[in-house]
Design a protein around this nucleic acid. Structure first.
Length: 577
RNA sequence: CGGGGCGUGGCGCAACCUGGUAGCGCGCCUGCUUUGGGAGCAGGAGGCCGUGGGUUCAAAUCCCACCGCCCCGACCA
């Protein structure tokens, strides 16, 4: 392609709204332009990269026997009501009405549509297993789109769904996806980490996420040198033992005027935060309609106790509460149940409150905690002796905690989620009646898996992992072009002629070549080439008299002179497939 | 949804506080010169100052409301 005829709107300056590197560079390099918050147009270069990513995904999905479909993005509400997700997902789903007032939505994922297809068409165990996938736009009304292509309201996802007769079949389909995903992310040039994941609102028994460690990431992963890796939502770790005083004193109230935070309390009491017990109050609202007409039912309050220097992990809390919806308790509710303001709460004397105690507090004694009286705390509080509750794992792991597998300190790192695989089990098939006859002629419910990859997130993560001050350094496999041909001065007849003929021969050799035939000064061309991230650059100029072009590897900065006849072969030897 | 910031030619910004015919850099167009890391000179095009209302002789500027975008938090498949 001749650059002079292409639309590659590079920007000399950083756009003001872009903060993270990938967002800034993709805008500057002319890959994308914003239409609205979380909605982007993919321009020529961006689309070329996206198509390469999608092709890699397609090849690897086909390789595990996946069959590509294309399903509607516009869904009738009834389908989502069948699984209860019309209401459950309402906050992030684009819901709309047609002229006749019928409820519709824009698909945020396709479990319902795929399962609908399966229940209508799959009749017999002989048809199983099936893996169906699509590469489709998804819509999510994100509360807060951000960081360019990192969190979008409108994005491309490869989503696949497996249908098996039994759990053993699902294990096989899941494993195939696991391996396909490894190949996909490796081929895209990403350094990634596979972590145990929380399956959240998707439901299901087992789940892994494919994460790219990056400061721009929104997720947090816990990793250990021994290989343990998990999403922070799910991660577990040990705690270093704490030496409590062996004093057998009874709880004793003491005044703590205006001391509301753990830090203030620790300083005031002259002890480290690990000797404090933090009390966090949550409320579980009663289900709608419960309790009869007009009868107010207060929410169930839950007091979560963690060590002073620990944080509550709400994903774990959700699990501990059996998936019930919960929220931080309101100040009035707290006053009602505890008789004190937040900051002075504790487990002693709380009325009608369920108490959950983090495992890290097991066996501790003589702790300091709130007295349920404003401006007062208690010391010498010992769990079991002074109060009781349910022990469970509720805290967020932090860097330095000992790994449960090997005892070494774990690390918490920010990461970009590029892929997620779930064992869904029978949840959707059961709700929607997707069944087949088994060998014995019995109707059995299908066992499903669901597997997603964010196409834009691969591009974003690749830019985050591969860039420098000058611009993008995309891996060859997903770069929009393999090589940029840069004549230093087109007014020089021999440079011009050589470049033209080199352009022809590179094309004939099957190289994806971007020919910078613009009437620009060399500096402009070099800077643009560096910015847009084409892996190889061929400079036609100074050394032409010796019959040489200068080759540059953008990534390694390695330079090499190549004779003109050898150039196409040299490029091909360094190009992706 | 809570907190903060910002909206002025394509991009980055100034003018706003202290009201009086809108300016700078980059980019764009034309010509000449130049040509290996974002050239020089000369000439030129391009702006409902986010939207609506109000105050005023007069509003980009002051007041009110709304919309949009960004950041932090909450939320998140």
């Amino acid at each position: 392609m001749r650059w002079s005829q292409l639309f590659i709107p590079t920007l000399r300056e950083d756009p003001a709204e872009a903060e993270v590197a990938s967002h800034r560079l993709l805008l500057r390099a002319g890959y994308i332009r914003q239409l609205a918050a979380g909605v982007y147009s993919y321009l020529y270069l961006g689309q070329r990269s996206a198509l390469k990513i999608m092709q890699i995904i397609r090849e690897e999905m086909d390789r595990i026997g996946g069959q590509e479909l294309y399903l509607p993005a516009l869904h009738p509400a009834e389908l989502w009501r069948e699984t209860g997700r019309w209401e459950q997902m309402a906050a992030t789903m684009f819901q709309l009405k047609d002229h006749g007032g019928r409820d519709l939505c824009l698909g945020m994922t396709h479990e319902e549509v795929m399962t609908d297809l399966a229940r209508h068409e799959l009749r017999s165990y002989r048809q199983l297993p099936q893996i169906w996938y699509q590469i489709q736009v998804k819509f999510r009304d994100e509360a807060r789109p951000k960081s360019g292509l990192m969190r979008l309201r409108h994005f491309i996802m490869k989503d696949s769904y497996s249908f098996d007769l039994d759990d053993a079949g699902l294990d096989v389909s899941y494993q195939k996806h696991y391996e396909a995903y490894c190949r996909i992310f490796t081929r895209c040039g990403l350094t990634y980490q596979i972590v145990e994941a929380h399956s959240g609102a998707m439901g299901g028994s087992q789940s892994h996420e494919f994460m790219v460690i990056s400061p721009a990431g929104e997720d947090r992963v816990v990793t250990c040198a021994c290989g343990y890796a998990a999403n922070l939502e799910k991660a577990r770790a040990g705690v270093a033992p704490v030496e409590d005083s062996l004093d057998s004193a009874k709880p004793e109230i003491f005044p703590t005027p205006n001391i509301r935070t753990i830090e203030e309390l620790a300083a005031f009491a002259g002890v480290a935060p690990r000797f404090l017990m933090k009390s966090v109050a949550y409320a579980i609202p009663p289900p709608d309609g419960a309790g009869g007409e007009g009868k107010y039912r207060p929410p169930q309050l839950v007091l979560v106790l963690v060590r002073g220097d620990h944080e509550v992990n709400e994903a774990k809390l959700s699990e501990a509460l059996g998936g019930a919806a919960f929220r931080p308790a309101h100040p009035e509710e707290i006053r009602q149940a505890f008789g004190a303001d937040p900051g002075f709460l504790g487990p002693l004397g709380a009325k009608d409150v369920r108490i959950l105690i983090d495992e890290a507090l097991r066996g501790r004694r003589n702790l300091i905690t709130g007295a349920n009286r404003d401006h007062h705390h208690l010391r010498y509080v010992t769990p079991e002796r002074d109060f009781t509750g349910e022990y469970t794992d509720l805290r967020a792991v932090s860097s330095g905690d000992p790994c449960l597998e090997c005892g070494q300190p774990v690390t918490v790192s920010p990461a970009i989620e590029v892929g997620h695989i779930f064992k869904l089990g029978r949840r959707y098939a059961e709700a929607m009646g997707a069944r087949v006859l088994d060998r014995d002629g019995h109707l059995v419910t299908l066992v499903m898996g669901s597997y997603g990859i964010g196409v834009e997130r691969i591009l974003t993560a690749a830019v985050e992992q591969h860039h420098d001050k000058l611009g993008i350094k995309l891996p060859r496999s997903i770069a929009p072009f393999q090589v940029v041909l840069t004549p230093v001065n087109l007014n020089d007849a021999s440079i011009c002629q050589t470049s033209e003929s080199l352009y022809q021969s590179l094309q004939q050799a099957g190289c994806e070549v971007l020919y910078d035939d613009r009437d620009e000064r060399a500096g402009v061309k070099f800077n643009d080439a560096d910015l847009i991230g084409v892996p190889l650059r061929l400079t036609v100029g100074r050394k032409l008299a010796e019959g040489l072009v200068e080759a540059l590897d953008r990534s390694s900065a390695e330079r090499q002179d190549v004779t003109i006849p050898q150039t196409p072969a040299w490029v091909r030897s360094r190009s992706a497939s």
